[in-house]
Amino acid sequence: MTWVYVLIAVVLVVSVWLMRGRRVESGMTSYRKHIDALSSESRRGVREVNDRQRNGRRPNDTGK
């Protein structure tokens, strides 16, 4: 009998996960995320990642 409860629990978890995936964000929310991801603070992370890489190992430079 326990396996039936386990199965129901699994089905519920999967359904909730699928519904979360299908949930459509409002235009305002996704636009806000888009703008926030382009902020200067957000971009600082990429520069820091690259600076770490540059200090660690220098990729082969080219001319042009």
Partner: peptide, 18 residues
């Protein structure tokens, strides 16, 4: 057209070649 550069997530620029 001149160079190809590759940026790897979490690593930075890992390749820069003609």
């Amino acid at each position: 057209t001149a160079n190809t550069l590759v940026y790897m997530k979490g690593r930075g620029i890992v390749l820069n070649e003609p």
